[in-house]
Amino acid sequence: MGQTTIAEAPSSVQPATRARPSLWHQVFIIIAKDLRAELRTKEAVNAALAFAIMILTLFSFAFDPAEDETKMYAGGLLWIVFAFAGTLVLNRSFARELPNDCLDALIAAPISGAVLFLGKALANYLLVMAVELVALPVFGIFYYAKWYSHFWDMMLVLALGTWAITVIGTIFSALTVNIRLREVMLPLLTYPMLVPALMASMQLTVDLVNGKSVGTDAIWLKVLASFDILYTAASLALVEIVLVG
């Protein structure tokens, strides 16, 4: 195998120093792109919202919303709805990059896998949150649940629980994007992974709906927070391997 090379024209064409966007600026660029692309069609958000309201309706046949006992189930029910509806948004996250091989262009760009992951996760977070914030009052009306009695506690649980769903959903969305049966594989992998986070969110929401503060079961708040921290760290550490091997 001959390795001839010809001496050619000089190559001292280093361009002038280039601006280097900060990491958070790069994250912001990805968030803005994902939100803009999604909000232009609103495909995933609308589907998720309709789905959430449909499940809330279906559950009303399983449990009598007027019964006092249902207050004990209501928190659990709410988070099942959020997990189901969230999956619809998360499925689209990396799937959006598929049609024209856009993911290649993002991987080729001078941003790290962690930045790409954070950007996508935060965009998903905002979308899932938006769906939940609409579904929550509907839930309150359908199930006579006073979710607003400790408003900020509820928002805290919502914020932590939704991040758990989002961080797991986003990394597994990257894992399953190229494979057969993507729509089925994502929930199959994420739901068992989410068990502790969902349990914690359910328990805390049951407390809140029944007029107690989150302080009653502070241990669940810790479970939820540690889940978020642990899996966010693991995702950031492993995302580069998922994207380029």
Binding site: R36, A37, E38, R40, R96, P99, N100, D101, D104, A105
Partner: peptide, 10 residues
């Protein structure tokens, strides 16, 4: 590459 790597909605 083979794909155009552009976003349809943008």
């Amino acid at each position: 590459g083979h794909g155009i790597a552009l976003y349809e909605e943008l």
